[in-house]
Design a protein around this nucleic acid. Structure first.
Lengths: 152, 152
DNA sequence: GATAAGTACCTGCATAATACAGCTAATTGA
DNA sequence: TCAATTAGCTGTATTATGCAGGTACTTATC
């Protein structure tokens, strides 16, 4: 347990906490008017549906660390706005499969593009190496978080 | 605007969004019982008081990207629990200076240590270089966020 | 194949953090 | 002196979330 380790971990902890604050503030500031539907988890849901294909509520909830009821409500809102469709699961009468609609994918892509543009602006003076290093390390950090939350 | 840039930025955007979700889930899971006081902004408030010294509500709100009323309530809760003290600002009769109490600093340090330990566990198999690189890049990312929010 | 146990989803509540609007008191500037 | 500004507080609404309970369906056991 060297001082180096401690201080580096402390810095990581600090920076992550700060990043959270900024992320929340940004989400609040940007998501007020038009696409309020994509607040919070909704964007991540559409994102995951686009990435991993249609799936049911439970799978989404497990993947996104959310309660099933929360996902149910998010999905209902998304359906109300025509961004996803619910179809009965042919292999399980209890379940419903959630699929993104073209409009949903479009909306998601628009938000994604806006966010990506935002990062592009902010990181305009970063070297490509630093950018891809950040992406890689964040990916590893998230993987570590996943492994911790799901020791399986 | 090469494809490399786009995809790297996209990855950063993805990973940050995921990190947010995990952070919220973790906070919810850990902060339930005992030190619920340090939920959300409260921890960051104590943290900032410890780092930057006693200051008034407005300064905290500006620094933490929060509404003044939110900070007022957080500070009230912290005072109720004996973690900060309010003293009249000698140089401005309207203001009150918020100072951490020893108990507050202790509580903050305990949470900080727990979080740091958590990161230590998760990043146990990371090389010291990768850790410090992550810390540095997160710091630069936050700085970029600060610069964007306060173009000043 | 009948019944018990488990699962998927939904709904009704409660909670927690937050913002906004409006208020009072104090400061500052003309 | 008085208008404009600022610091902080309080009332109200919003929003995302979890938990508890209910219903319909599935799976396993005998």
């Amino acid at each position: 347990m060297s001082d180096d380790h401690e201080s580096t971990l402390g810095r990581i902890e600090t920076e992550v906490a700060l990043l959270m604050r900024f992320g929340e503030a940004t989400r609040r500031a940007t998501g007020t008017a038009e696409h309020r539907v994509l607040d919070r988890a909704a964007y991540v849901i559409l994102r995951h549906l686009a990435d991993a294909g249609p799936q049911n509520v439970s799978a989404l909830a497990a993947r996104l660390n959310l309660d099933g009821s929360t996902v149910t409500r998010q999905v209902s809102a998304l359906q109300r706005d025509g961004l996803i469709t619910r179809t009965p699961d042919p292999s399980d009468g209890r379940g419903t499969v959630i699929s993104p609609t073209p409009a949903g994918l479009q909306r998601m892509a628009a938000v994604q593009a806006a966010r990506t543009r935002l990062y592009g602006d902010m990181l305009a003076d970063w070297s490509p190496e630093d950018r891809s290093t950040l992406a890689a390390l964040l990916g590893r950090l998230n993987q570590a978080l996943i492994n911790r939350n799901r020791p399986r």
